[in-house]
């Protein structure tokens, strides 16, 4: 007898939730796969009624938006889950956050408005801490880079080395002075970069700074994604990508103030 996919009550998805989570402290060393595993377990542990794909090895329906690389911290990572029961997003946030290890923190959950999450995640804002580099040094390098129209860098991808322009997608780049966690003075770069293919990451910008101005940080920099969302090209700022979802829920509530 041939093996059939196991029969399960694969309840249909009735609600889509969008989550914003942070990757903090020592957990910045998690890879995307590590986070996927942790999240799937946390969803089970929190008892979130996930919708599953069908087949021999059913998977919970989760879609991830481009994740920050291993080693980078983030205050603004996003994903979407489908559930088989209507849930209060705030309760999901609290339950899921409690089920994840400290350092993987669920910051925000909203019910998804129509449209793709990827469409609103147009740009990222990053802070790049450069220990043992002065703000002056960093500022000079930034000026040199921003003066160029195009700077080609090379990065190792799974498919092999790839060359691409790291300057074009940079919307804003500025150097400031700051302090490391241990209180030492350091330079801090603020970067706003448009999402392109391939995505230009902070390490590509650092490569570009080295190529253009010879800036070579003596210690590995500490990178943090501060925000992701729609880009306002005028001001060069990144807005809240979940604002539209919240607004559409507010509309629904206004139209029907007593659901159920």
């Amino acid at each position: 007898m041939a093996r059939q996919p196991p029969e399960r009550d694969n309840a249909p998805a009735v609600q889509k939730l969008r989550l914003r989570y942070a990757k903090r402290g020592r957990l910045r060393f998690t890879s995307h796969r590590d986070i996927q595993r942790a999240l799937e377990r946390a969803l089970r542990r929190a008892g979130v009624p996930m919708a599953y794909s069908s087949g021999f090895t059913p998977h919970p329906k989760i879609s991830y938006a481009g994740a920050a690389a291993m080693g980078a911290a983030s205050e603004a990572e996003y994903l979407e889950i489908s559930v088989t029961e209507r849930l209060d997003p705030d309760r999901v946030r609290a339950a899921l956050d409690a089920a994840l290890p400290p350092g993987l923190d669920v910051v925000d959950v909203v019910e998804a408005a129509p449209g793709a999450l990827a469409d609103v995640l147009q740009a990222s804002e990053w802070a790049i801490q450069l220990p043992d580099v002065s703000a002056g040094q960093a500022g000079d390098a930034v000026a040199a880079l921003m003066a160029k129209g195009e700077v080609e860098v090379e990065r190792m991808m799974k498919s092999g080395p790839r060359r691409f322009d790291a300057r074009g997608p940079i919307v804003r780049l500025a150097a400031d002075s700051g302090q490391t966690t241990s209180g030492a003075p350091c330079a801090i770069l603020r970067l706003v970069v448009r999402h392109a293919t391939p995505a230009v990451r902070p390490d590509d910008v650092l490569t570009a700074l080295r190529q253009v101005a010879g800036l070579t940080p003596p210690v590995p920099p500490l990178v943090t994604r501060l925000a992701q969302g729609p880009l306002d090209p005028e001001s060069g700022t990144v807005a809240d990508p979940l604002a539209a979802d919240r607004a559409s829920v507010d509309d629904a509530v206004a139209a029907n103030p007593h659901p159920r």
Binding site: G25, R26, L27, F29, T30, S31, D34, A38, R41, M70, G71, A99, L100, P101, P102, G103, P220
Partner: peptide
């Protein structure tokens, strides 16, 4: 840690 393979194995913080 940024200089080694699979740094996550050294950071702890497990559930």
């Amino acid at each position: 840690l940024p200089l080694v393979q699979k740094p996550i194995q050294y950071v702890g913080g497990e559930l």
